[in-house]
Amino acid sequence: MGLLGKFFRFLLLGHCCKPTTTGGYSDSLRPHGISAATHGIWALAYDLFNFEITCQVPEDLSQHVVSSKKAQANWYRKLVETWREAKQPPRSEEEAARLVIQTLKGHKKADVQGLLDFYGLPHPHSLVKVSAGVPTSLPRGVKFEFRTLPVDAKAVPDGDGVTVYVSTSDPRESSCVPSDVQIAAIQRSEARADKNYTKADELHQKIIDAGYRYGTECSKRGDPARKYRIRLRGIDAPETLMPYGQEAKEELVKLLEGMCLRVLVYGEDRYGRCVADVYCNGIFAQEVMLKKGAAWHYTAYDQRSEFARWEEEARRNQIGLWASSNPEKPWDWISVKDR
Results as ranks from 00 to 15, higher is better:
1 M>F: 10
2 G>N: 15
2 G>M: 11
3 L>H: 09
4 L>N: 07
4 L>W: 02
6 K>I: 03
8 F>P: 06
8 F>E: 11
9 R>W: 08
12 L>K: 15
14 G>F: 07
15 H>W: 10
16 C>I: 02
16 C>W: 09
17 C>A: 09
18 K>L: 05
21 T>E: 13
24 G>P: 05
24 G>E: 04
25 Y>D: 12
26 S>T: 11
27 D>S: 08
29 L>I: 13
29 L>G: 03
30 R>Q: 14
33 G>S: 08
39 H>Q: 14
45 A>I: 01
48 L>E: 12
52 E>D: 06
52 E>M: 07
59 E>N: 04
60 D>T: 13
62 S>V: 09
62 S>H: 07
63 Q>A: 13
64 H>P: 13
66 V>C: 09
67 S>T: 11
70 K>F: 09
73 A>R: 15
77 R>Q: 11
80 V>Q: 15
81 E>K: 14
85 E>Y: 13
85 E>D: 14
92 S>N: 13
94 E>Q: 14
94 E>H: 07
94 E>Y: 05
96 A>D: 01
97 A>E: 00
99 L>W: 09
99 L>C: 11
105 K>R: 10
105 K>P: 00
106 G>I: 02
107 H>L: 04
107 H>Q: 11
108 K>G: 07
110 A>G: 05
111 D>G: 02
112 V>A: 04
114 G>M: 04
116 L>A: 06
124 P>H: 03
130 V>W: 02
141 G>Q: 03
142 V>D: 09
142 V>C: 08
142 V>I: 11
143 K>W: 01
143 K>Q: 15
146 F>R: 14
147 R>Q: 15
151 V>R: 03
156 V>N: 06
160 D>T: 07
162 V>D: 00
166 V>C: 05
177 V>T: 07
177 V>Y: 00
184 A>Y: 02
186 I>P: 00
192 R>M: 14
192 R>A: 15
194 D>Y: 01
206 K>M: 13
207 I>Y: 01
207 I>H: 00
211 G>L: 08
213 R>H: 06
216 T>G: 05
218 C>M: 10
220 K>Y: 08
222 G>R: 15
222 G>W: 11
222 G>C: 09
222 G>Q: 13
224 P>F: 06
225 A>E: 00
229 R>C: 02
230 I>T: 01
234 G>V: 04
236 D>K: 01
240 T>E: 12
240 T>K: 12
240 T>D: 07
242 M>F: 08
243 P>T: 02
246 Q>G: 13
248 A>P: 10
251 E>G: 01
254 K>T: 05
256 L>R: 04
256 L>I: 02
257 E>S: 05
266 Y>I: 03
267 G>S: 09
267 G>H: 05
269 D>C: 08
270 R>Q: 09
270 R>N: 08
272 G>Y: 01
274 C>F: 00
274 C>H: 01
277 D>H: 10
281 N>Q: 12
283 I>V: 15
286 Q>E: 14
289 M>V: 06
291 K>I: 01
295 A>N: 02
298 Y>T: 14
300 A>M: 10
300 A>V: 12
302 D>F: 08
304 R>L: 06
304 R>C: 03
306 E>F: 10
309 R>Y: 13
309 R>E: 15
312 E>I: 00
317 N>T: 03
319 I>P: 06
319 I>F: 06
321 L>R: 01
322 W>S: 04
328 E>V: 13
330 P>K: 01
331 W>N: 15
333 W>A: 12
334 I>A: 04
334 I>Q: 12
334 I>R: 13
